[in-house]
Design a protein around this nucleic acid. Structure first.
Lengths: 222, 222
DNA sequence: TGTTGCATTTATCATACGATAAAATTATGA
DNA sequence: TCATAATTTTATCGTATGATAAATGCAACA
């Protein structure tokens, strides 16, 4: 960044360079805010955020009209910025056996999404009652949980074109829970689990696949 | 409470009555604080708590030396107040099959511990970095998770007197995760799962029992 | 070089917070 | 009934917060 070569064309290049730089600075402010909010919560003062960024507090108000808007930008970065674009196709790729597919996906998911900052922001926003949190859980069910349930049903029970029962969906939620809570214990509570994440995921997938065929028979919903 | 009969003995009875009443008031303050902290977080102001209790703010300082001490009392009430004293013996009662024992225990555990206030206080205190939270997770592992792993090992693999492997312990954590995250989704995120809690617990227990025998062979730890 | 427009800081405001002291109220016991 | 102690309220302090306006710094351009 130190020896970034200035564009030769002054008029357009200069203006674009300046504008981009301003946008990048704004992004840097958001990312600094993420780290502050992650540590302290959304009650982190604007002065603390500014001090962390090495600027003065009123400057933030030139980039964000209010603290609440800064928080909304943080939401967008955290929730939208880490979603894998090829997860959907990855989950449906029947060239790979379902067990391997699930293990690969959850290892990828865990590495992409879960870290201390993300989980803490996720928890803080949930406790603040942010609508985006409920939205995220619903998206997770629609984009990940239910597709997995369908793929399992097709591979293990070979009933094409049928919907997954609610008990089957809930069983996939159990897998999701295992991965999620493993992350929370390790990254938020800081009680290091004694089994590595890949082993935990493989065992949880096996556990799900072992119980899954028993869930299709019987009642749809109570 | 309106027609509570005063004790006849004035000297002792009167004093005891007054002391008890003061202690009860203090307890009522703690419980009101729990409801405030649960909604707002530990940044709920002492003025808000006092308003919720129908008293003035400085009065709280006659019962608690500081806000931090009030928070500590809240911790004690929340974390220690709901622990079932007979859970340990319940989990070891071999007169009942292990599957039924686990289902009964987790239904009992869910009903006793999980509600909106408890879970939110739990999450808020975890994010504040309260040591009591780490302590709770460690106690859970020692009092619940590891005993369950041992009972499962003895019943499913019939190897008496042997310790549970870390993979086995982690598998029980997966069961715990399913129950926990079910509660969080339902009570904190307010995304109602479509399967009732008893069914979810039964399926999760079956899932654990199905995978458990595969975990004993092989490596102890990686 | 001087001027124009943007970026940043200094100074400030109204409000809310945790906490304390003093006054006022209420209950207790002779 | 009255004095004494316990309980609750009013008044207040110093500090921290979100937000705004005015002043300063600074790079680009002629």
């Amino acid at each position: 960044m130190a020896n970034y070569r200035k564009p030769v064309a002054n008029q357009d290049g200069g203006q674009i360079k300046r504008k981009l730089s301003a946008a990048e600075r704004r992004t840097a402010y958001i990312e600094g805010a993420i780290r502050c909010f992650s540590e302290i919560g959304f009650d982190a003062s604007t002065r603390e955020i500014a001090r962390f960024l090495g600027v003065t507090q009123p400057l933030l108000y030139k980039y964000f009209p209010s603290k609440e808007e800064l928080i909304n930008e943080v939401y967008r970065h955290v929730y939208l910025g880490r979603w894998g674009k090829n997860w959907a196709s990855q989950l449906h790729n029947r060239a790979i056996p379902i067990r391997e597919r699930l293990i690969d996906f959850y290892i990828d998911y865990y590495r992409s999404v879960f870290d201390r900052d993300w989980l803490r922001i996720y928890l803080f926003s949930a406790l603040r009652g942010a609508k985006i949190n409920k939205w995220y859980v619903e998206m997770l069910e629609a984009q990940v949980i239910r597709p997995i349930a369908l793929e399992l049903k097709r591979e293990l029970i070979s009933t094409e074109g049928q919907n997954a029962s609610e008990a089957e969906v809930e069983a996939v939620w159990s897998l999701q829970s295992s991965v999620y809570y493993y992350g929370v214990r390790s990254l938020v509570y800081e009680v290091e689990p004694s089994v590595d994440v890949a082993t935990m995921i493989a065992n949880s997938v096996d556990s799900l696949m072992a119980v899954f065929p028993n869930l299709s028979s019987g009642r749809e919903q109570t």
